[in-house]
Structure formats: C-alpha cells, structure tokens
Amino acid sequence: MSAPEAPLLDVRGLTKTFVGRNGRTVHAVSDVSFSVRRGTTVGLVGESGSGKTTAGRSVLRLIEPSGGKAVFDGVDLFSLSEREMKAYRKRLQIIFQDPFSSLNPRMRIDAILSEALDAADFARGAARRERIAELLAIVGLSPDHARRFPHEFSGGQRQRIGIARALAVEPEFIVADEPVSALDVSVQAQVLNLLGDLQKRFSLSILFIAHDLSVVEYLCDDVVVMYLGRVMESGPSRKVYANPRHPYTRALLATAPVPDPTRRKARVPLMGDIPSPINPPSGCVFRTRCPMAIEACAQAIPPVEDLGGNHHVACIRHAELA
C-alpha cells in the first residue's frame, strides 16, 4: 500500500497569547492541532470567544503566532521571514466575515480586484480587464458591476466580491472567516453553494470558520470543535455528527437548527457564559459549563485520545458518550 498523501496544511501546537496594557496575558489559542487535506474543507467551529478567528489568522500570519508549527506544502510558515512569507501570500488567501468593512468604500470594484491582481504581478490593460470580468462572472456577478462602489451592492453581493478578490491570485488554500454569519439566512445558502462549487471547480483547500455546526455539516469534510482556545473534538464530519464524544460538541449540535421537524435531538444543557481567556479554568476549560464535569476534570488538561478513523476527543469521560 502506498503511504497516505501528506496534508496541504498541518498545524501542530499552535499557541497565541496577547499581553494587555495592564500586563495581563490573554490565552487566545492554546496547543491547537489540525490538518487540511488537499482539495477538502475543514470546519473550525465554536462559540464566539473560542479562538477560531485568532487560529485562522495566525496560520496565515496576519497575526503572529506565539508558538507551534504550520507546515504548508512541506514548509513551516512560522519559520519564514517576512520577505519569505510574502512569496506564499499568493497561495494563501482569506475571505473576511464582514463583506462591507473588508472592502474599501472609496474604491470601485475593478480597482479593488486590480489591487489584488497587483500582488500577482498580473498584466495590465485589456488582459487585466478580461480577468476582472472573469472573476466577477465566476462568483455570479455581471462584468458591468466592475464600475460600481461597494455600497451599491447587497450584503451577499459584497461577499461574492470578497470571494472574487480571494480567488484573484489563484490560491491553493483559503481561510473563510465566518463568511456567511453577517448575511440573511436565504442569502447564506446561496453563498455556501457558491463556496462549495468553487472548492470543487478549483480544487481549493478551505479552512471554514463558523459558530453554526449545521453550516459546517453542509459544507465540510472534517470538523474541529474549539472552546476557549483549545480543541475539544475533531474528525471526519460524518463521524463527529453521527457520534459526538465530547459534551461541548453535543451541546452545540443540540442548539443547531434542524430543518426536519420530525427529527428530535437530545438536549444537553449549556450553562452560563464562556469564561475569560485571561483566567481560564484549570484542567478541562469546558468543565465550568459541562453537565458531566467531576472533580477530576479540574485536576489536569485532558489528553487528546484517538478513537480511530482520525476521530479525536479531549474528555476523560468520553467513553460514557459512546
């Protein structure tokens, strides 16, 4: 048998801390590991404040990580100098959450896309105009839209422009940072379908950040569940959704909307608010809200256990959820 293909992106032990003006340390991301296979979409999911966006931006070094590795196509991105990292920017792109604030309101759409093409040293003149028209068509917009300003578009259309900008340099890997959370539900489906089509069409590898597990189930091959900067559970989407082995994953699934009213879900109480990353709980960071927490949960950080089939969980009581 041939050895399995190495993932396009392999993140190990990613850590990011911030130090505030008062000297307090914020533990935003702690020892996070996951991988993204070529041509697949991985969902990074959790509540607001769980560290998802920080993790995604740290991988791209839009935020400088505090520790760990991010091996992209055999090269550790965290070991590169700023000049060396610049050469990788064409291969790594991001789609931002807010489609309005991520676009310069004073620039027309052709100028916004042209700015992205500058990074790829793309030819000017007729060739560039044709490329801009092509990018707009790819995301379902008209070439005539190139001369408009961002405020002349709906939220869904603006997000399509953000997607076109990310595709301009023909990347291999994209971080999609909650790209549909600011959109109406009806528009969300359209943008999700577009992302799914583009992923297949261009064999993209995508890290899809979201707080809604139902969205991740629809789009993603694998899922990584984060809470307060740590990974609680990860694995193929079908395995995690069919048999979640962490109480937090079960709580998120219980609150996710289900379109079929005949399907009943076991409710798992999720009490209180997510703690502050300045002073995270000892042991398992989820224990203060976990209905299954026992005294041992406070004693040590639970090890990540391999359940087989690339399904991993960090919970000392996971066997009781089998």
Results as ranks from 00 to 15, higher is better:
M1C: 13
S2T: 14
P4R: 04
P4W: 11
E5N: 03
L8P: 00
G23L: 06
D31H: 03
V32C: 08
S35F: 08
S50C: 14
K52I: 12
V59L: 15
S66A: 13
G74H: 13
V75I: 06
R89E: 09
Q93W: 12
I94Q: 03
S101I: 02
S102Y: 02
L117S: 09
D118P: 02
F122S: 05
G125R: 03
G125M: 01
A127H: 09
R128V: 05
I138P: 01
V139K: 09
A146C: 06
F153Y: 03
Q157E: 15
Q157K: 13
I161R: 05
G162H: 14
P171G: 12
A176G: 10
D177R: 07
E178I: 04
P179S: 14
V180C: 09
A189W: 04
L195Y: 06
L195C: 02
Q199T: 02
A210C: 00
V215T: 09
V215H: 09
Y218E: 03
V231N: 04
E233I: 08
Y248K: 12
T249H: 04
L252G: 04
D260R: 10
R263H: 14
K265P: 00
R267H: 07
V268Q: 02
M271H: 11
N279E: 13
F286W: 00
M292L: 15
A298F: 01
P302R: 02
P303R: 14
P303F: 13
V304D: 01
L307F: 06
H311E: 09
